[in-house]
């Protein structure tokens, strides 16, 4: 029984990198089971998982063409003039 427990049990320290890893590729079945079992018993690791998913969802939003942040940031006027000149010359 002890052997079985060891086989399936993970600590939070083991689980934290695996939660992250699971977001990046398909982890082997046994590992996935172990993570699932740990998460079903550990509320704080579940919070951790949701936090990483929240960060992922915010990052996805940041990546959009209509950038949701830095709205006050514009190309410096001088750079704009230079670009316009470059475009006019190479059109």
């Amino acid at each position: 029984m002890d052997f079985m427990m060891k086989l399936f049990s993970l600590t939070c320290k083991d689980t934290s990198p695996l939660i992250s890893e699971m977001m990046d590729h398909r982890v082997p079945l046994l590992k996935r089971w172990k993570i699932k079992i740990h998460l079903s018993l550990c509320q704080v690791c579940m919070y951790y998982k949701e936090q990483l998913q929240t960060i992922r969802s915010l990052a996805k939003k940041l990546g959009q063409e209509d950038v949701p942040v830095k709205k006050e940031t514009t190309l410096p006027q001088e750079a704009k003039e230079k670009l316009k000149l470059m475009i006019e010359t190479n059109k």
């Binding site: 209509d66 950038v67 940031t73 514009t74 475009i87 059109k91």
Partner: peptide
């Protein structure tokens, strides 16, 4: 000729 004014700031951000 409109690229900089239309998309410059957006592309920069």
């Amino acid at each position: 000729s409109q690229w900089v004014d239309r998309y410059g700031d957006l592309m920069y951000r």
